[in-house]
Design a protein around this nucleic acid. Structure first.
Lengths: 286, 286
DNA sequence: CGGGGTTTTGAGACCGGTCAAACGCCGTGG
DNA sequence: CCACGGCGTTTGACCGGTCTCAAAACCCCG
């Protein structure tokens, strides 16, 4: 009945021996969740109370680099991230990856496949992951018995829809610096939500992946992070990011005059007086 | 029970007198649709057969410029476009519009409001429109009686999710010319699907709105259309667009050397020999 | 210690944005 | 009827942000 969904690429994840789940539970965390636990994970209140352990959903583990699903693969199950970090990507007409998102704890995966019954994107584990399986046919069948389940699904999909709309807004309207700044803020908030520090955390993805996600090149991402570091908005050490001034990051639209231009401006300032100070403030405020 | 959803701005649309639907039906087209008709409109096959006229959904008309819903407005109904053209927009931190899409016949509107129970975007009629109302509470209640309804909703939302993902891919990876080209191709296909000509049609939106949608300025959109016109890919006369070479548009990545650069290249060619010919072909092929 | 992938940094080119002017279209009012 | 003004569009000149290409430093891991 269940499908482990990994036939297309890479070895089957470590929990693929269904019969011996008892052993599995003891060896590496829990392998089953009930509905309540899953809704908590999704941050969604489930209305009617359902017998707590009436419905159980199996977990599956993926190791770093493994694909959860690939483009074109037949769709039959959704996933909810219980732990770990992933990326979802589109592959364009000639092989280039375009990162669509970085799902983490509490996110749902695979909804792109519902419409055509085939996945239009690819999901890859950026770290070891623990995902909850949600066989779609089982889900719709359950919807007939527990209608409140549908509301959960509507909610999750609507949330994802809005997230993507905000992303479109970002890509369409913001400068490179503003995109990187908001990316960092969003990440920090996500980490806070998961109980980690929002002031100091590790990026799980490369500059290249961040750039692809934000519609920028890896060089621009790197330069921008360096610039934020110099100004004291953040600290950067490889993939370790420290958030120093979250408010400035949130409202940032353009970068203050860059290092190279700073000299020119400083020279101009000597001649032109203090008028530049007010301009410098506008950089963040307007 | 029904809400006409237009309290926030502008006059109530013309069909707001519920009691006298007979008169309404005779005056301006049909004012009610059944489930089958709506699913046909959405291009979705409904599985179980439901008594054809058991469920009826009211229509509402909007005139050009009217808002269907505004940002922050409480959500309680979805809409399906029966005729007309609209735009959906986000408003950023300081008042600028960002166009998210141009819904037309067969598209669903309002799904962004499900999650927070408030709309996060605004929908505006670009022409006189006829929309079918889908009160959300009624919809979920019906889902308990006719479970196949849920599949319709999943399908529609998944389709929208994928559409937005493709949009993100476009904004993140494509050049201005490629974006405009794909926009035209997508429009042409939409018109074909609705039974109109895909070779000659009228844009319903301004250059500014197109630019906002594609993450470009209106000047760039205008210049790009002019360039396509010069090369013979399309014909442009104000908002009338003729598609001359759809295949070239579909596969276009970069524009052939522009008029201004052509001179320089021609000069270089005289000196450097014929090597440039092969480059020119790469423009479309790679 | 060596090697591949990742990141940083620089120099230069180019795309697309910005600013500005002129034109066309159209509804309004003299 | 034409003059007018507002809005959308076109086109040009220029500037600057971002990409491209390249080299070097760095990191992790075998």
């Amino acid at each position: 009945m269940f499908s482990t969904q990994t036939s297309a690429k890479g070895p089957v994840p470590s929990a693929s021996h269904l019969p011996s789940m008892e052993a599995g539970r003891q060896r590496q965390g829990r392998l089953w969740s009930n509905l309540k636990e899953m809704c908590d994970l999704l941050h969604i209140c489930i209305a009617g109370s359902i017998a707590p352990d009436e419905l159980l959903f199996q977990h599956v583990q993926f190791k770093t680099g493994q694909r959860i699903h690939t483009i074109g693969q037949p769709f039959d199950t959704l996933y909810v991230v219980n732990s770990g970090f992933l990326k979802t990507v589109l592959i364009d007409d000639f092989g280039n990856e375009q990162v669509l998102g970085f799902p983490m704890k509490g996110d749902m995966l695979g909804t792109d496949g519902i419409h055509t019954k085939h996945h239009s994107s690819e999901a890859v584990a950026l770290s070891d992951c623990d995902l909850i399986l949600l066989p779609f046919k089982k889900l719709t069948a359950l919807g007939r018995i527990h209608p409140e389940l549908d509301n959960v699904m509507y909610d999750v999909m609507s949330r994802e829809l809005v997230r993507e709309q905000v992303m479109i807004g970002m890509l369409g309207a913001l400068s490179a610096e503003a995109r990187v700044a908001r990316f960092l803020v969003a990440l920090a908030e996500r980490f806070a939500q998961m109980g980690y520090s929002s002031k100091l955390f590790n990026l799980r993805m490369t500059r290249h992946e961040i750039g692809s996600y934000l519609g920028l090149t890896l060089e621009t991402v790197s330069r921008t992070l360096s610039a934020f570091n110099e100004i004291g908005l953040i600290s950067v050490d490889q993939r370790t990011i420290g958030i120093k001034d979250p408010d400035a990051l949130k409202s940032l639209r353009r970068l203050p005059p860059s290092r190279s231009r700073a000299k020119q401006l400083a020279a101009a300032k000597l001649q032109a007086g203090a008028k530049l100070d007010s301009e410098a403030k506008l950089v963040v405020a307007v």
